[in-house]
Design a protein around this nucleic acid. Sequence first.
DNA 1: TAAGTTCCCGCATAATCACGCAAATATTTT
DNA 2: AAAATATTTGCGTGATTATGCGGGAACTTA
Lengths: 248, 248
Amino acid sequence: MLKKERQAYIIQQINIHNKVLSSDLCVQLDVSEDTVRRDLQELAEEGKLMKVHGGALAKSFHFTIESKQVYSLPEKKIIAHKAIDLIKDGMLVVISGGTTMRELVNMLPPDLNATFVTTNVPIALELLEHPNAEVIFLGNKLLKSAQMAVGAEVVQRLGQIKADLCLLGTNSIDLHLGITDLEWEIIEVKKAMIACAQKTVSLAISEKLNSSQRLQVCPLDEVDILITELDPSDERLIPYAKRGLSIL
Amino acid sequence: MLKKERQAYIIQQINIHNKVLSSDLCVQLDVSEDTVRRDLQELAEEGKLMKVHGGALAKSFHFTIESKQVYSLPEKKIIAHKAIDLIKDGMLVVISGGTTMRELVNMLPPDLNATFVTTNVPIALELLEHPNAEVIFLGNKLLKSAQMAVGAEVVQRLGQIKADLCLLGTNSIDLHLGITDLEWEIIEVKKAMIACAQKTVSLAISEKLNSSQRLQVCPLDEVDILITELDPSDERLIPYAKRGLSIL
DNA sequence: TAAGTTCCCGCATAATCACGCAAATATTTT
DNA sequence: AAAATATTTGCGTGATTATGCGGGAACTTA
């Protein structure tokens, strides 16, 4: 069996199970543990997976483990700042959750007169502190992990809205699947958010570029603008620009 | 199971429940307590959580506890404690806003399995921290002054609910007008809350007795139970008892 | 205070890893 | 096609890591 084949098999297993054990692989592939380990190491260097003691995990684990609850990372401030310029007086803005978004809300100019629609509780609370923002919370059952309202009711009500802008906190974005996320219920809501807005903006710090989770929120061509903390000319962004996204 | 996998699971649990017990984890993950403890310690060193005797807490939990002590008047604690006894497993509870209510939510026993309906943002956020509570947020336009959703949409959806209990944070209560409040939009919602519940409970600290605002929420006879920090035999409560309210 | 947990420490065991080397295999050159 | 070169693989060795267990200390709770 060829090396490439083996590695393809490993990736496949990772995609299915989100993890592999070296011990399993060396039986399935009929090679020594060393070989498996070397394969994993190589794949890890290519960023295809995450090597750990005893095997490897899908890259998505990285986000669970490294869940930076750090509120104000400088990167997030930069992103927030860029995004704020897109919001004009009188706009109706649909806004998702996440710490970047909270940062953004916090930085909104006090004299801005816009209406915000959200399903995320901390964001709503933050928006309430703004002197002029009108806040609409689409409620329903709340999802604990994301602190947001989810479900058919929310999706339906989003369908009745025609927004100018959709600001999307993005967990993972890559060229293949576009924007992806972890939980089905979140996907549903985000999809509806995108659908109801004229322009969709994805806010992602650069480390979330070229990573993907299991479930697709939307393909790349449904995203209009991509905002990262990087300079638009950064090479990491070029493939996205080629796909027609505006980069800020 | 891989170590990182375990740790990811722990982080997930922390994100959902804001806390974990070592004893629970070592059953769920099928490892010894030592291993769990070592995992927690490691995660604590990385700043992902906060280790405490018996388990670990989310890092944010600490902050919320500290900020909570600002509004924790002892009277409110007493009231909250009395009210909690009314909430049983499986109940559907409609709950309004206010600091007393926040105190109450904070003190809910972790093993309580109830569903809560609210329109108040900080209450919703607090409820999300509870490990077992199901939270339903009825959303719409948010009223800044009360940090809650108001409007016809909310009233209508409350009309579709049949709740066991309505916990009402009360600004003013007197013998003539019953419960009163300041703003029209709040009144509307509170009325609907009372109407949809089998039992209405008014939570008020004693200084709010015998005071009234401009607008009536409901007359006294629509309130079933009145909870204050006073002893039920206190003379200030006797007139209310005579009007048929249960006093706790 | 006393009982029951939980924690901490060191140790033993087993699994996993890293490294060098030589054999096997693949690729390029002649 | 043969030789030369490069790459890949497996194995042995010793180092590193992960885990469970015992015993005593520290903490919690009644």
